[in-house]
Design a protein around this nucleic acid. Structure first.
Lengths: 340, 340
DNA sequence: GCTTTTTTGATGTACGCACCTCAAATTTAC
DNA sequence: GTAAATTTGAGGTGCGTACATCAAAAAAGC
């Protein structure tokens, strides 16, 4: 039989309450006593039963996903998964909900984060740009006792620990490799389209893309990035300009996680030339485009996986356990029409 | 506050014990009473607290993974993940272990399965060929009250429900698409290597591979499958024969989940010709080969994901809950050197 | 045919699971 | 001797389970 807290208390010669305080790293226990309990833990091989623990705490866990208020299709996928996880975890006393913040304005994001109290959230996964304000807000949340992890887009510095998401440089490199191979060595240039290059994700992807193209596919030239600013009209215009100016175009790389406008804009040029198109993130749009051949590959990460992973990591942090990093590594996935 | 069984009992005008019987679908309750309780459940929005339930059951859950006794590298990955899950789930009263069976001999497998008692396992995920004996054995296990799901290689018929793994036809098609694109339209033939074509997985993959090559890449000819029977010497011999007979070879497709011998065998031909090589399953061998360019792509499924998914599904079955199928869909992943 | 006994079926009671919590008691420090 | 720092005890947390109870149905006895 597995030893319980009761056994542990006996073995350490203290009461249950003291054992509990040591287990939960609370204050008010003499160091000598703490040591005695810890010694007893290893001696009798105690392992606490998390089920009983969370049950006794009455309140289960409440986790939040801080996500931009307005976002692309991929964000919708994430939101859907957050809701699903919430449904599926309710019976285990875990509540998960999205917290929408205004991403454009770091100050408002900061204030939103500042409003989160520990009694409302045990932990939050934060998807937000790595600005100093947000960094501070995150630090303060931690001080308030809320567990935090960066989500999808990483923060720099030590907050990075426990990051859930992919390495965007590698994701860009993956797209680059596909582009290089699919264009089959013919010389030409590649158009790169994104919402904005301000975003760290786009930047890193482009970096990874460029590095492998330059290194491995010297026949290709990557053109300067086109920024759509999320405006379909503008998108059409700049795409037309580039296509007119570059008859040697052989590929289009849609870096941002919003592929609707770019795809629509290149649509008319698909038939006149033999273009390879690669986009990011699995969304209804990219899936449809893959299916009917408007794009050739999609580089993505599994939204369900990242959300589940984030919840596991947050929970582990709350229970001051460690998770196997290997388990939580998010894969960069490649989608073709055949493996949707 | 969430309603508890106590609230439910009051609302239905019965005792806790009766509520419990209805909840766990046990006998000895009048239909009228059952209806009353069910009505009360929806009326007050009761949702059972699984934490408390499993805690009170004393015995948590014990799940088994029925796996072949001798297997390839991919099987080792699975085994590793099973151990990891076991470690990580112990604190939630879930035990997971591998059950090794002799896959060669369906009768011995059958007997092994027959030995599994309900007091030892609440549920098992079964990776075994779809023979009539095994089918029967699985049916009898269910009658003994053990939950079962097919794992990685599917069974036919109704046992298929809750299958955890990929569609191998699509996996083969994915490999085919990559082969077609990577060979860039040059005419030539493709060698197909596997342990044995007896295995359903290999068969289905080949089917998927052929169909897309025939349909989409008419420049390519897929040669008859080479069977290695797991013998490195034989592998070298048959590979040499094929390479000598087919100077027009442009690609090699390693269908089986054991790539060591085939890779070694084609090694000497890599440099004399410009070959595209595609294999299945992420293993130390395929990862190393991808990294140094000996193979160009790997089609795989995430072992950690499938094991976790199987555990989730088994648990849901034990607690007669349903899982969101969308959540549990296993992705066919493509690995290049850039997204390892 | 009617009463008594047994069986069956349906429901309730009380306690335990392994841990948390908080007020009260004890020890220690000053 | 008092205040602060530690430690303890008792009473939850939501649910499962063994056992008790009690009514209704079946069987047995006369």
């Amino acid at each position: 039989m597995r030893p319980t807290t009761k056994d542990l208390a006996k073995a350490a010669g203290v009461s249950l309450a003291t054992v509990d305080r040591v287990l939960n790293r609370r204050t008010g226990v003499r160091k000598k006593t703490v040591d005695a309990v810890n010694e007893a833990i290893t001696r009798i091989g105690f392992e606490r039963n998390q089920l009983a623990a969370t049950l006794a705490r009455k309140r289960g866990y409440r986790f939040g996903f801080v996500l931009p208020k307005e976002g692309d299709e991929f964000l919708n996928e994430i939101l859907g998964r957050v809701r699903e996880i919430n449904e599926a975890s309710r019976s285990e006393m875990i509540e998960v909900k999205a917290i929408r913040v205004n991403e454009q304005d770091p100050h408002r994001t900061e204030r939103s984060l500042a409003r989160l109290r520990q009694k409302d959230f045990d932990g939050v996964a934060i998807m937000a740009p790595a600005t100093p304000q947000i960094r501070d807000a995150i630090r303060r949340m931690r001080e308030r006792g809320i567990q935090t992890i960066p989500f999808i887009s990483n923060q720099d510095g030590e907050e990075t620990e426990g990051f859930v998401g992919i390495d965007n440089r590698s994701a860009g490199a993956t797209a680059g490799r596909l582009m290089g191979r699919f264009t089959c060595g013919q010389p030409g240039s590649i158009a790169v389209i994104t919402d904005t290059m301000q975003s760290r994700d786009s930047l890193e992807r482009r970096l990874g893309f460029d590095s492998i193209i330059n290194r491995t596919f010297p026949n290709l030239v990557v053109l300067p990035s086109l920024e759509t600013y999320g405006d379909p009209d503008r998108t059409r215009k700049i795409v037309k300009t580039v296509f007119d100016a570059h008859p040697e175009l052989v590929g289009v790389y849609v870096v941002g996680s919003e592929a609707r406008a770019p795809l629509e804009a290149i649509e008319s040029f698909r038939y006149s030339r033999n273009l390879i198109a690669i986009a990011h993130e699995r969304t209804p749009t990219t899936v449809a485009a893959l299916t009917d051949g408007r794009i050739d590959a999609v580089v993505t990460q599994d939204p369900g996986h990242i959300v589940r992973s984030a919840v596991r990591i947050l929970r582990a942090k709350c229970e001051n356990r460690t998770t196997l990093a290997s388990q939580e590594k998010i894969r960069i996935e490649i989608l073709l029409a055949e493996n949707l």
